[in-house]
Design a protein around this nucleic acid. Structure first.
Lengths: 346, 346
DNA sequence: CTGAAAGCGCTTACAG
DNA sequence: CTGAAAGCGCTTACAG
């Protein structure tokens, strides 16, 4: 096995020109050749253990066959299904997928350079919750590399696809309302998509039920955010009987904080998290969540990218099918009777 | 801004040859030139918004400046720090990092092709727990692309670095022994690294304390594995008073199963998980863990890769500094007195 | 049915 | 101080 064999070497061994070697490798041109020639070439290919040079191929074809997926907080378990969907759809189209975290995209990083440069990445799928710096975003927009955003954009200068965050929060809220809750809070996220869309869904559900929505408590992401969320709720006049948490890890953090504070979930406080992930099923009490079609989001995103690359951009939009779905577990229950009637007490 | 400007276009605008353009871009050759020329070229570069073509560069330089990191179960929270360490060390050496999951590496995938091919990936960091198929591994080994394994190898034909899994499990076990436990089980993982190393550490600690180790319960990974682990433990004659779990998510799953079964953690059963991740602090009872230097592992792995690429391979080995460390939380407590003396009861 | 040649965009000896 | 040229490994019209 010759480590670095090229088509030239194969051509030499098989006594043909590189054109023919390339032809048997790609099957695009020179399709007609004698079986004997083809066999000789295939033997030589196997003999040297040929692997193509992707850089040369990318340069010549003017496309790398690779797309990048960049998300904020790679460790977010909600991305598991998203990645799977993206991977499957990309493979089906002949693309390799590479992943990265938005924190790697800081100005001047080699990672960013690879995204901005041409030749090694054909397109980018980007999901962020507002923590990415504007400079990096501006860099991206200034490049010809297509970028599809995995979140709703009010100003659709960038193509985007998104799950229905608003509907998800609406469902979560309605689930609580059906349980008789009237004082429901909304906690978590930052000012920006997708948190804002979720808050809007919550407000809509509250308004529909003629209930007063509370202010959006921007506590950020992660378990710590849930802990802070409960602290803020307890520092108010009245502790609500239920809370919608913008993010599943925050919801788990809020659950822990409630346990530590001796607040009984779900009897005194019901909790719903957005995004159904494994951990929701594993904490105690188990967490009621809203399942969002993250896998379908990944598939749609790749389709959008594909359309974009072929010059036929699709309508940006929200994934309607499958719709978000409440997964009821043990963290939600009917509102405590004594509180819904009088609405006081800590 | 001309979307696809090349050095040729810049040279034309500045009235120089591409050699000089390349020189100001890279600063390697043609270092002496008139300030006026340099200024004119820099102006042209800014004017067209030049970005290099990475494929052309990679082809010419015969290196891509990108390393791939492939792990099993991307969603494992223990990787968060590992990725961070790898990223920092790689950036410092001028490499971009791309991530992928081992399940993407199945034969014939475009992702695998990109790893196997030359030109776009200079080297690979690979971590797996035995779930990767041998065929993919054989493919990798047959290529000249350097691979560093992020786990201990008994047969060091591949370079490797690893955290001290054995010491971690030993510490976990000793922590329980200090609490007076004598009947301690070991649950989780598969037959293979790093689970085996952890089991060995457990056995060593038990032997040192003249206690009888139990059999390794191979239940796999993830929360489900912990649930199965508890089921198996309960189906035995005697439920141990403590358990070391090979994997932190499995430990959380075991905690949930214990709660559901009405087994009091930590008063009836103490639980320790390997790997300190955020979730350990957020479940209730919070989970005692052993913290492993995953960030240092990432840094060392990149150093090893760097040495390998420069033809001076380092000694493979275990990261001794910082050493593993027990993070005591609420899932471990002194052994129940009535059980350590009589050792029966369910 | 097969080969010679151009060219993707870059870097780097080499010549002047 | 600057330019012309070769060549990295591939694909693809084009010619025969």
């Amino acid at each position: 096995m010759t480590p670095m064999a090229t088509q030239k070497e194969i051509a030499r061994r098989a006594g043909v020109s590189v054109s023919v070697v390339s032809a048997v490798l790609n099957g695009t041109t020179h399709t007609r050749m004698s079986d004997e020639t083809r066999a000789r070439i295939e033997a030589a290919i196997a003999e040297v253990g040929y692997v193509p040079n992707d850089a040369a191929r990318a340069l010549r074809r003017q496309q790398a066959g690779t797309i990048a997926v960049v998300v904020e907080k790679l460790e977010n378990p909600a991305y598991k299904e998203l990645f799977h969907g993206i991977y499957e759809a990309a493979e089906a189209r002949g693309w390799a997928v590479v992943l990265g975290d938005t924190v790697w995209m800081r100005s001047g990083s080699h990672f960013l350079a690879r995204l901005l440069g041409r030749g090694s990445i054909d397109a980018i799928l980007l999901r962020h919750d507002g923590l990415i710096d504007e400079e990096a975003l501006a860099h991206l927009r200034a490049r010809p590399t297509p970028v599809v955003l995995l979140e709703r954009q009010s100003d659709p200068q960038d193509p985007w696809v998104a799950v229905d965050d608003s509907a998800a929060a609406r469902l979560a809220t309605e689930h609580l309302i059906e349980f008789g809750h009237t004082d429901i809070a909304f906690v978590g996220g930052t000012a920006g998509q997708p948190s804002t869309a979720r808050y809007e869904g919550y407000v809509a559900a509250m308004n529909d039920a003629r209930l007063s929505p509370r202010e959006h408590l921007f506590t950020g992401f992660g378990a710590e955010s849930g802990v802070r969320g409960l602290t803020e709720l307890r520092s108010g006049d009245v502790l609500p009987t239920a809370v919608v948490v913008a993010n599943v890890m925050s919801a788990v953090g809020l659950l822990a904080a409630a346990a530590d504070a001796g607040i009984d979930v779900p009897r005194r406080l019901s909790v719903v998290g957005i995004h159904d992930v494994e951990i929701a099923d594993v904490v105690r009490p188990s967490l009621t969540t809203v399942r969002l079609p993250m896998r379908a989001l990944g598939v749609r995103a790749v389709e959008e990218l594909s359309a974009l690359l072929s010059g036929a951009p699709m309508e940006p939009g929200v994934i309607a099918d499958p719709p978000p779905q409440v997964i009821a577990r043990s963290s939600t229950a009917p509102a405590p009777a004594e509180l819904t009637s009088r609405s006081d007490e800590l």
